[in-house]
Design a protein around this nucleic acid. Structure first.
Lengths: 344, 344
DNA sequence: GGGCTGAATGACAGCGCTGTCCCTGGTGTC
DNA sequence: GACACCAGGGACAGCGCTGTCATTCAGCCC
């Protein structure tokens, strides 16, 4: 009942521990018969190898770290849960385990974090979440130490890409472009935009998509664009700035759902009915997006799949399969709900 | 630059590795002078001990697992993120690391989970989230293997308590009682209630609080109470059942925020203004609760602190401090926002 | 048949720590 | 002075695996 070791398995299967190790790791040199015998012994003993021992002696640790920053309170970071769930799933499938680390962006000690990840934990890879995934200091520390990184929604900087690891993302430009087109198709011309956090690469891409869809790259009246930080609170101010104008837009497209919900909230307070007098759209499809009133039109990203892909990349790479070291772009989809409608 | 070992530190400090180990682990036998020398050497080498080696040779693994079940899509489980954040914080402070494992409740193999936790990971403790924390099968498996468990919001079963580990919770009865009183104080008499998931212990406690506050334990008309499952969707049906009655309640108290938001949604669709024609209240204070329209009156639990306390308990216990093996009850607070008001 | 190749397996040395036991020399006691 | 005692510190054996290299034994070629 208590912990079975590789020795027990070897004894039962009547082979050396090395052979057990080989079979369990799927190494080639083992006859089918031996393989079966070992597997059976392992099963009967309910044996699971010790991660610590494997990590200590071998070159893999079977550990992946998901590093996040930023407070929970920040609605914008809510998709971390979903990402994590995807990563966990992929880890299970590959015999890996997911560690979650947190770093305070304020008093951040990247050196200590790196040391922990590399020396203490010896992780096989790290999944980085924005805005961490775009911090050159952290990235170069990790690169120096040879850590495999996967960046979620990283900047588009091509040259850095190769140096700093693989990335997963959606096509933020296209997502914003399509959403803007959706509003235009409905008949909107006066479409306000709330920008994302200037440090998030996705923010600029989304704004570009909006600009190009609305004015094909031409100048857009300043009054239509308000700064935001991807947070609900920042969305509140931006929404007010947009809605208190004498000639207010008939639609507002926020660079993410948190801010779009802020628009909903301000409109509600000001007595502006949505969507009849104002259409509102966001990006992300947060869990909350479907439960607010009215349900939010937004762009859904396959966050869980992205998390799974990130973990899988690290696992494959550690197992020797050299990944293509590029960025994988996932498909997004427009989710049209009730917050958008033709202007009346 | 590359991984420094305890040998390096020993050499630099001119002591044996055992002494380094002693100093770093805060063991008594070491003079102040030696201690300082070792610390200095460790710092200068940027040394961090290997977790694997420590775990393999010692009795602690410095690992805590947070086990969750249930889909991400389930709004009700959203507070996992917050719990996790608290646990991570406590882990960092204690030199621990947090692993997140997931188990599919459908095809659940508790034996495999336990084996992974015990043999493979050798975790020092496990944090269990509802409804996992009330599953007798899993609990007894873990207890058999001597795993320290902390259960979040567990059943009140006192006898099981000691056998199955420590727990953290709020006083669900009081929380619901106070919320109901709040509605009564505002003048409501016809207060509907949406029950929680029958398997969650908190659900029954919350209902009891509601019943006692409203009718002091006496019979409550059936029409006022609707079944729910803590999910948004279940809240939708319950809300409809409540609001389509000829004589509909003037207030609805849902056993959690997800379902309360469903009430908001149904009311919106039916054109019932909140709070003027209907007050709505929930429990949990989800991140989304403050951004819906109108912002939801709810009960806030100190989820992050609860997570931190859970992790801290495991850490202390592993370090030898025998915990009191009871349940720690945290203070909750009524958060009155705009979804409740006197009936008109 | 001798030598060679290659597949299947085992022996053995660590990986970087901690637990246990042991040694040293200074102090206190009578 | 003989003894016990204890704080301070070292030697050493693993923890449970994997990497490396050695060994064995078919099968095969000329």
């Amino acid at each position: 009942m208590s912990k079975a070791t590789i020795y027990d398995v070897a004894r039962v299967a009547n082979v050396s521990i090395k052979t057990v190790s080989r079979v369990l790791n799927g190494e080639p040199k083992a006859s089918a018969e031996t393989r079966a015998r070992v597997m059976e012994a392992a099963r009967s003993l309910n044996y699971t190898p010790s991660l610590s021992a494997r990590a200590l002696s071998g070159s893999r640790s079977f550990l992946i770290a998901l590093v996040s920053s930023g407070g929970v309170s920040d609605n914008a970071m809510l998709y971390v849960t979903e990402l994590q769930m995807g990563a966990i799933q992929a880890c299970r499938a590959g015999g890996y385990h997911l560690l979650t680390e947190y770093i305070d962006l304020g008093a951040s000690d990247f050196t200590a974090l790196t040391e922990t990840l590399v020396s203490t934990l010896r992780v096989d890879g790290v999944i980085l979440i924005p805005p961490l995934c775009d911090d050159p200091q952290l990235l170069s520390l990790l690169a120096q130490r040879g850590v495999t990184c996967v960046r979620i929604s990283p900047t588009l900087d091509g040259s850095a890409e190769e140096k700093w690891g693989w990335g997963v993302d959606i096509d933020n430009y296209q997502a914003a472009f399509q959403m803007t087109r959706h509003l235009i198709d409905q008949g909107h011309r006066d479409i306000g935009f709330i920008q994302g956090h200037p440090k998030h690469a996705a923010a600029a891409q989304r704004e570009a998509g909006y600009r190009d869809a609305l004015f094909d790259g031409g100048p857009i009246p300043d009054r239509l664009i308000q700064p935001g930080l991807f947070t609900f609170d920042s969305g509140l101010s931006a929404a007010r700035a947009l809605l208190e104008q004498p000639r207010r837009p008939t639609a507002i497209f926020a660079a993410n759902d948190s801010m779009a919900m802020a628009v909903l909230s301000v409109a509600y307070k000001m007595g502006i009915p949505v969507p009849s007098a104002l259409s509102v759209a966001g990006i992300d499809d947060l869990p909350a997006a479907s439960v607010v009133c009215p349900p939010l039109t937004t762009v859904r990203q396959p966050v869980m799949e992205m998390g799974a892909a990130a973990a899988r990349f690290i696992i494959d790479r550690t197992a020797g399969q050299v990944g293509s070291y590029l960025k994988k772009v996932f498909d997004h989809s427009l989710v049209v709900r009730e917050s958008t409608a033709p202007p009346t």
